[in-house]
Write a protein that binds this DNA or RNA. Structure first.
Lengths: 136, 136
DNA sequence: CTGGGTGCAAAGTATTTGCATGAAC
DNA sequence: GTTCATGCAAATACTTTGCACCCAG
């Protein structure tokens, strides 16, 4: 049920050396879906007790630049990171805090924006706040 | 053409004391539409050379709590603040950096989300990245 | 072997807190 | 007069940088 991702190829294809630290970082981000730096640090430390926060930041930044990762900035909570995947939006539950992906079409709105304002959008972030199924 | 806002009432109605500093803060945020803390500090200092960053942060946080203000977190740029107003979305130009408001309907998507996932959304943030009319 | 990655320490930036004084109501 | 805001200094949190050493290719 979990998508298998080839971290090795992902790194190689982006001219980043494959190190065990990087593999674990990607593994953990994928496991959590969305994770903030401190939680990630905590989990990566379980496999690399000596890894430094600086290394984590450096790697995160390198992968952000290569667009392997994406920054998820959400009002009210710490910035999280996710693997870059198909265009999707986020739902954030105000009760339990869960952040979920939802793969829905966003092009319709982009086109509406273009016709109304001439702004040509090629990307978007959408965050919906409310109450998730489980918390209702 | 500029909406006149009664900062006095806005503060009073939210149980916040009316101080000249607060009025100027609201004035500047309104003038810029969206502004980050450093730019705001710079402009507020023109009228209150002795104001401290701490005071600015305290006021911003107080007004965020009362929902007079809203945090605008956008991937890649510094967090900005705006006055709370009718539901709207943001367009961010990748060339000139301009952040603009766009008042379009978001309920249709909220309903789509509800019917697809049972997530009940009561609010959303939407940021579209691309090229604005002027920069094309 | 060579270039880039790692870990540490230190620097830099951002944000919050505590407290004495002063202004709002 | 009482409560809360302000401004300063200090503390804390967050992120980046420099450098010596080490590993991936």
């Amino acid at each position: 049920m979990n998508t298998t991702i080839n971290y090795l190829e992902l790194l190689k294809n982006n001219q980043l050396k494959v190190t065990p630290q990087r593999s674990v970082i990607l593994e953990q981000i994928n496991k959590f879906g969305h994770i903030d730096i401190d939680t990630l640090y905590m989990y990566v430390k379980k496999q690399f007790p000596n890894i430094s926060l600086a290394t984590l930041y450096k790697n995160i930044n390198a992968m952000l630049e290569k667009t392997i990762l994406k920054e998820v900035k959400i009002a009210g909570i710490k910035t999280k990171y996710e693997l870059t995947k198909a265009q999707h939006i986020h739902t954030i539950c105000n009760k339990c805090g869960a952040v979920e992906d939802l793969f829905i079409d966003t092009n319709t709105i982009s086109e509406q924006i273009k016709s109304e304002t001439n702004f040509i959008a090629d990307e978007c972030d959408m965050n919906f706040f409310g109450v998730c199924k489980n918390c209702q």
